[in-house]
């Protein structure tokens, strides 16, 4: 049997990779994908905990995370499309109107 902590460590590594992608990547869509990666990592630890405790509430949590991620993707991608139409660029460094 695999110890549950392995799943949790895998989830931690994936989460950190997601954070790294979020900080490193310059394409706004890839940044968005890094957020999805972080959400997925958290989902993995939810499912692992649910398995450890024999609890279905964890599955429900994952379900809600997925729903929120879907809603987020719909609105986020619409915003990105608008941004592309206005700026003709997907680079986050080009979107600096609100930055000092």
């Amino acid at each position: 049997m695999i110890p549950v902590s392995w799943y949790l460590i895998l989830s931690a590594v994936l989460f950190v990779l997601g954070v790294a992608g979020f900080l490193i990547k310059r394409n706004v869509i890839t940044v968005f994908m890094s957020i999805e990666l972080m959400l997925n990592a958290v989902n993995l630890s939810f499912v692992a905990f649910g398995y450890m405790l024999g609890d279905y509430n964890a599955h429900i949590f994952v379900f809600f995370v997925m729903v929120v991620a879907a809603a987020e993707a719909a609105v986020g991608l619409a915003i990105i499309m608008l941004m592309y139409h206005n700026r003709k660029s997907l680079n986050v460094d080009d979107i600096e109107l609100l930055k000092f």
């Binding site: 049997m1 110890p3 398995y51 450890m52 405790l53 024999g54």
Partner: peptide
């Protein structure tokens, strides 16, 4: 900083769940 974050998470996990397998397959 990222390495620090990773080490911290892994350390906490190792401390809290040391390779034990608390699985109750019957419940699932």
């Amino acid at each position: 900083l990222l390495t620090l974050l990773l080490v911290e998470i892994v350390a906490v996990l190792r401390g809290k769940y040391p390779t034990s397998d608390l699985v109750h397959p019957s419940l699932l």
